[in-house]
Lab assay of single mutants.
Amino acid sequence: MATKAVCVLKGDGPVQGIINFEQKESNGPVKVWGSIKGLTEGLHGFHVHEFGDNTAGCTSAGPHFNPLSRKHGGPKDEERHVGDLGNVTADKDGVADVSIEDSVISLSGDHCIIGRTLVVHEKADDLGKGGNEESTKTGNAGSRLACGVIGIAQ
Rank of each mutant, 00 (worst) to 15 (best):
A2P: 04
T3G: 08
K4T: 07
A5V: 13
A5G: 13
V6L: 11
V6H: 08
C7N: 02
C7M: 05
L9R: 01
G11M: 08
D12Q: 15
G13W: 05
P14R: 09
V15W: 10
V15Q: 10
V15M: 09
Q16E: 13
I18D: 05
I18Y: 14
I19T: 05
N20K: 14
N20Q: 07
F21C: 04
F21T: 02
F21A: 08
E22I: 09
E22A: 13
E22W: 13
Q23R: 10
K24V: 12
K24P: 08
S26M: 08
N27M: 08
P29N: 15
P29W: 04
V30R: 04
V30T: 07
K31C: 08
V32C: 12
G34C: 06
G34W: 00
S35R: 12
I36P: 02
K37C: 08
K37N: 09
K37V: 11
G38W: 08
G38F: 06
L39N: 07
E41L: 12
E41K: 15
G42T: 05
L43G: 06
L43Q: 11
F46Q: 15
F46P: 02
F46C: 13
V48P: 00
H49A: 02
D53E: 03
N54C: 06
T55P: 02
A56Y: 08
A56S: 08
A56H: 09
C58F: 15
C58S: 03
T59Y: 11
T59I: 11
S60C: 03
S60W: 00
G62F: 00
P67R: 14
L68N: 15
K71H: 06
H72Y: 02
G73W: 02
G73C: 03
P75Q: 13
P75M: 12
P75Y: 07
K76L: 14
D77K: 03
D77A: 08
E79N: 15
R80Q: 04
H81R: 02
V82Q: 13
V82R: 05
V82H: 06
L85P: 00
L85T: 05
L85N: 03
L85D: 03
N87K: 00
N87C: 10
V88M: 06
T89S: 10
T89W: 06
T89C: 05
T89L: 08
T89F: 06
A90E: 06
A90H: 04
A90S: 13
G94F: 10
V95S: 12
V95G: 12
V95E: 09
D97V: 08
D97P: 06
D97Y: 15
V98R: 03
V98K: 03
V98T: 03
S99E: 11
S99P: 06
E101F: 15
S103W: 14
V104R: 13
I105M: 07
I105F: 06
I105Y: 05
L107S: 03
S108I: 05
S108K: 11
S108P: 04
G109P: 14
D110Y: 05
C112M: 13
C112A: 15
I114D: 03
I114C: 10
G115V: 01
G115E: 01
R116A: 00
T117N: 05
L118Q: 07
V119D: 00
V120Y: 04
H121P: 02
E122A: 12
K123G: 10
D125N: 03
D125R: 02
G128V: 02
K129S: 10
G130T: 10
G130K: 15
G131N: 15
G131C: 09
N132L: 10
E133G: 13
T136V: 07
T136D: 08
N140F: 13
A141L: 02
G142K: 13
A146T: 05
A146M: 04
A146N: 11
C147R: 04
V149Q: 05
V149N: 04
I150R: 02
